[in-house]
Write a protein that binds this DNA or RNA. Structure first.
Lengths: 231, 231
DNA sequence: AAGTCCGATTTGTGATCACATTATGCCCTG
DNA sequence: CAGGGCATAATGTGATCACAAATCGGACTT
């Protein structure tokens, strides 16, 4: 059962935006990141170095380094057996993730706001169109990609590397879980809360942006939490 | 200049609490962590895999994995040159760290509080005695060790792995910087803010504990920030 | 027929080697 | 004596090999 349902994404040989002449362990890291964030891995699923290496067309060595990195970010989990797996979600962990998101992301958005000009805002609105399209289409992976792009684009503009890294780690931790939920119940029940954020940015209203991001997080996470933990 | 002022800490061969039969890369990780948290490394200082390997008495291989892990935690920095160094502090990064600490650590303390019984509180008070002793002694490393133990002991009791990992990453990022400041101005001007936290725990006052931790962070970080950035 | 033990396979770990890239020191040139 | 180019050394990266622990398979026992 070596390759079972691994999805397809091999490491692109060359000419890929953002990973041109980068070291193999970096390309492997980015490839695994993609799978984790957008549903390529099933929570709880065991992962082997040699398996990933074969699946990505590289030797086990760069995989080791990429996996070690993802373990440090808590995107993967190292058990006492010395075996690696995609962490399973628990109600407790989920609650911590929600708290961390609410504590960090609105601030990150506010710090980004002064740097969001016309072109950046246009790009953000374009991404939001993609979100709604994916929602209507009932496309979970497309929704997750666009939704991540929406937040990541804003947060990256904050150029706050420390806070950004913390938030990035958090996203990596609920990515696989999000995918299983949407795969089960679809995306049609979602509502797009991003318009409030966009208009707040347009009028450079910091408090408005903070509460818009907060509401977006609360609404989205409550939906995920309720359908998964039925509390 | 291979060995310059590396400090001494070799990787203890065996019989060390918490790293008995652990893999070498784990022991190396813990050793490097110690150096970073408690002042064994100078910010901005370059670090080489082979150098660390020789300094720790292991092959470069486990060092690679430990360093990759620390890079992911932002305790070390990977430059475009592919060279690794201890990150230098900036006013901007420092500000982000303060925000993250204030956003996460009081909550972590509150989540730990119900689990702090008589024995745990006694242990915490004992650690605080160590802090005051190190302060009077003018011992920066001892102060940093005890201060870290004080916070880490409380936060670990929260058993909140996700939030704990975020906070851990933050501490790793200001450890070396803290050391340079205390090394420059000493620890005699510090005041111990922990009594307020201890008494809040004793009467199980969540809000009181939150504000005590917040004040401790603000006071300590303001001192560090002022002496370093003289703003 | 169910549980247990033992052998074969898989897996993580660590070391060593080879190579490309980068940094460093030296010599030469002006 | 200063500055630039070149040979040498050092460094990160990746592959391969060897080994020990863990897992999994089936055969055997009761």
């Amino acid at each position: 059962m070596s390759t079972s349902n691994d999805g397809v994404a091999l490491v692109e040989s060359e000419h890929l935006p953002g990973a041109g002449g980068a070291p193999a362990h970096e390309r492997v890291y980015l490839a695994l990141r993609e799978r984790i964030l957008f549903g390529g891995f099933q929570p709880g699923r065991p992962v082997t170095l040699r398996g990933l290496a074969e699946s990505l067309g590289v030797s086990p060595m760069p995989v080791r380094e990429a996996v070690r990195r993802l373990i440090a970010q808590r995107a993967l989990e190292l058990h006492d057996n010395r075996r690696v797996s995609v962490p399973a979600m628990t109600a407790r962990k989920f609650d911590e993730i929600v708290f961390a998101r609410l504590a960090l992301e609105p601030e990150l958005a506010v710090r980004a706001m002064p740097r969001i000009g016309e072109v950046e805002l246009a790009r953000i609105e374009q991404i939001d169109d993609g979100i709604e399209a994916a929602m209507e289409r009932g496309d979970p992976e497309g929704y997750m990609r666009s939704n991540h792009a929406f937040h990541a684009t804003i947060y990256n503009l904050a150029a706050s590397e420390t806070l950004g890294a913390l938030v990035d780690s958090v996203w990596l931790q609920f990515g696989p879980f999000m995918r299983t939920v949407y795969g089960r119940v679809g995306t049609t029940n979602l509502e797009d809360q991003h318009q409030k954020a966009i208009s707040a940015i347009r009028r450079q209203d910091g408090e408005g942006l903070k509460s818009a991001i907060s509401e977006d997080i609360m609404q989205g996470m409550r939906f995920i939490g309720e359908t998964a933990f039925r509390r």
